[in-house]
């Protein structure tokens, strides 16, 4: 039947070659470079001295830096829970009640998903800063006498992460709720379950792959994010991303920065791998 079959292997590889060459040169090899760097040390002029030492890894998890890692996971974790609390009802509403306007509702979520994260984060500075929208409004109303410290706090960082990653949570949730067979919901209600019970015993379990996919897609970039803590945070809200940035751009300890980057990636890739083995990759992409 298939006339291409004879040389299909060759043709396919030729067509894939440019992409694979590009990804090898500009993704795989660079990752190998930081892997090698991560066992090295910092030279006198900020250059990387290659070597084989695990000291960068022990340093990453030392009492000095461990809090940064824990904080990153904590902030990302809280933000993930918040996006779930905001995103699940949103996805549920669009999937079940969206009707003819479904696409409009979705586009309104996808636009922020694809537009500049930097600018969306910046917009919170305009709102939260001392002369910002909230402080100006509240003092005009006479509610406060002096400005509130809203910016550069754990609050503003978690808020920024929640805001930034809400679409990342909502879209996979929607994808799995959309697939849900609505007659199952009716069946549950006909059998006497109230809406809460239907939600807990039917909808939620069936949308679990979407919940896990959304959680990963939110949590992963949130842990490694540096734009949000950099713009909305302060010295006591440092996250892994900030430390990686400092090591590469100001402290010039690339070896340590590489070890942090590699640890971050390894932890997250293991998480994804476990997820895909259990649930399949369908809802993730």
């Amino acid at each position: 039947m298939d006339r291409f079959r004879g040389h299909s292997f060759l043709v396919a590889n030729v067509l894939l070659a440019p992409t694979m060459l590009w990804l090898t040169l500009f993704l795989v090899l660079p990752l190998l470079v930081i892997f090698v760097y991560s066992f090295g040390g910092r030279g006198a002029y900020g250059e990387v001295e290659l070597g084989f030492s695990l000291s960068n890894y022990t340093k990453a998890f030392s009492p000095l830096w461990l809090p940064v890692i824990l904080r990153s996971f904590a902030f990302a974790g809280i933000a993930t829970v918040l996006t779930l609390a905001l995103g699940y009802p949103l996805a549920y509403f669009i999937a079940i009640y969206g009707g003819a306007k479904k696409n409009i509702f979705l586009i309104l979520i996808m636009l922020p998903f694809w537009t500049s994260y930097l600018i969306r984060t910046y917009s919170w500075i305009v709102i939260l800063r001392t002369e910002g929208v909230i402080n100006t409004s509240l003092s005009w109303l006479g509610v406060i006498s002096g400005p509130l410290d809203l910016l550069n706090t754990p609050f503003s960082v978690v808020l920024g992460l929640t805001y930034g990653f809400l679409p990342f949570m909502t879209l996979p949730l929607y994808a799995s709720l959309e697939k849900l067979d609505k007659s199952l919901l009716e069946a549950a209600q006909d059998l006497g379950a109230n809406r809460l019970w239907t939600l807990l015993r039917v909808t939620l379990p069936l949308s679990l792959p979407g919940v896990v996919a959304g959680t990963l897609l939110t949590f992963i970039p949130a842990v490694g994010d540096f734009v949000t803590p950099d713009l909305l945070g302060g010295p006591d809200t440092l996250m892994i991303g900030n430390v990686i940035q400092q090591q590469f751009l100001s402290a010039r300890d690339w070896a340590y920065g590489s070890a942090l980057s590699f640890s971050l990636m390894a932890i997250l890739l293991v998480g994804i791998f476990l997820y895909v083995r259990k649930m399949g990759s369908e809802d993730l992409m």
Partner: peptide
């Protein structure tokens, strides 16, 4: 291989390229 750039944290991608 195609999914790797989609799931890798952006900052790791960035510093890896810089190092490369």
């Amino acid at each position: 291989a195609i999914y790797v750039p989609l799931v890798i944290p952006e900052i790791v991608f960035g510093v890896a390229l810089l190092s490369g």
